[in-house]
């Protein structure tokens, strides 16, 4: 699972059947240890009700599609958790 922050969303009315009714979010990867936001972004579907500004956990690859099983959804990035707190102990 990757850590990121929702910075926006995308509206797309013409899309593959599997994307119907799914929220499409824009997420910036964030370094969990420093909190620094990456310059890059990805586009992810969302099974949570996260909003702009929320810190989230997202899956990529085939696992992103399994978040919707048994429905067949063509996605390679899906937000699967809203992260409330990150506790890092040790060195």
């Amino acid at each position: 699972m990757f850590y990121g922050k929702v910075i926006g969303n995308i509206v797309a009315t013409v899309k593959a059947k599997g994307l119907e009714g799914k929220k499409i979010q824009v997420v910036k990867p964030v370094d969990m240890t420093t909190g620094i936001e990456s310059g890059k972004f990805i586009v992810a579907l969302d099974i949570t009700d996260s909003g702009i500004g929320d810190y989230v956990g997202y899956e990529d690859g085939k696992e992103a599609a399994w978040a919707f099983e048994p429905e067949e959804v063509p996605t390679d990035a899906t937000i699967v958790a809203i992260i409330d707190k990150v506790n890092i102990t040790g060195e």
Partner: peptide
């Protein structure tokens, strides 16, 4: 995941256009 549509299932396809973007907010 690109093969998870009716048109691309079980085909040698690893990249698929799944949406036309209307707006980015």
């Amino acid at each position: 995941s690109a093969r998870m549509t009716d048109e691309t299932r079980e085909r040698s396809i690893d990249s698929v256009i799944v949406a036309k973007v209307d707006s980015i907010n």
